[in-house]
Design a protein around this nucleic acid. Structure first.
Lengths: 188, 188
DNA sequence: ACCGTCATGTAATCGGTTACATGATTCT
DNA sequence: AGAATCATGTAACCGATTACATGACGGT
């Protein structure tokens, strides 16, 4: 059995459903935004289509609300829970990549100081957020999320340290104010 | 102008072509394998299709070998060089993500010790390779690749340190010691 | 001459992203 | 009541991965 291919997105959905079943895709979206999105983003549309897929292959059970919005509620089936556990218990993982566009730009000849000045605030902010979450005043967390958070802290520290070393060694802080929308190449 | 959408893959191709034009897609594949693949992999088929795309929008010039294999040779056009420079000179970059499947598995409840044992050798090996490349006996490198390599070293160090801390230790409660593996104490 | 691996591509599929659309709530 | 935002989804497109396929070259 187990002839069904599961993408990483599939496992995310199964894992999120496990934590709050029965859940609508929108519930998953909110839950993802609180947690996994910190190191793995996915657009909300994926959650809808992925829930459909997983229901089709029998890993999720779909049910409609009876009144009001008649939203779709998904819960793990036994097969789904088994698939999730199988994946979770197998320590093998396809090797990761860094895949950071700023490093690519650096690699291909971009200006190190300018890129560093652009990158640093975001990593610094992430680091602070993670440290606040991990602090004693933050919410209590399960082992998995807590350890993943430690990894995030370690990586953000490395980023902050690296980009800091590339900063143009001007006086105090010209680092401030580097916020601008990034995506729009739209013609006006 | 600049109405053409360029994916990251596009920029990789433009950047690689710049370094060894005129180049066949296969040349690009080899060059990528020596360099950029360390933090951004792409299958060789992408190089073929991306060269086609870029030729269609006028950023690459295509020419056929006259004899023998009649392979296709690509070179940057003026427009292509300009597009590459424009991208390179713009320090803004869409924010990156970690997107490491092993962290996801950890997050969703996988066994920390087992995952760590699986992850550690690869990161350790990468770290050694990078350090060898960066050493004095390694090949001389341009600034971009050299700095990207420094980033790779910093990140791999963080990974090695993190996963090491999760390794099933001889002592019982090693999981307690996870916080702050880098050596820096948390601010109050 | 044969076999294996490198070199060089084409084509189909599929997951992910983008664009669009509309019904509920909340705020003023 | 109207505006704004949240909630909930559908559909098209496109880039990326996978599968397949074949020609050249080197070794035995």
């Amino acid at each position: 059995m187990s002839t069904v291919r599961l993408s990483t997105t599939s496992l995310i959905v199964l894992g999120l459903v496990e934590q709050c079943e029965p859940a609508t895709p929108y519930d998953l979206k909110r839950l993802a935004q609180l947690s996994v999105v910190n190191f793995w983003t996915l657009p909300h549309t994926q959650l809808y289509t992925e829930c459909d897929r997983l229901a089709e292959v029998g890993y999720l059970h779909e049910r409609r609300e009876e009144h009001g919005r008649r939203r779709r509620l998904f819960a793990l089936t036994d097969a789904g829970r088994e698939a999730l556990d199988r994946w979770r218990q197998d320590p093998r993982v396809e090797p990761g990549e860094v895949r950071d566009a700023s490093l690519l730009k650096l690699f291909l000849g971009g200006d190190p100081g300018a890129i560093a000045a652009e990158q640093l605030p975001g990593h610094h902010r992430s680091l602070e957020v993670y440290q606040a979450l991990a602090g004693d005043d933050g919410p209590p967390m399960a082992d998995g999320p807590r350890l993943a958070l430690q990894a995030g802290i370690a990586l953000e520290r490395a980023y902050v340290s690296f980009w800091s070393s590339l900063l143009p060694a001007a006086g105090a802080s010209a680092v401030r104010e580097v916020a601008a929308p990034i995506g729009d190449a739209r013609p006006a």
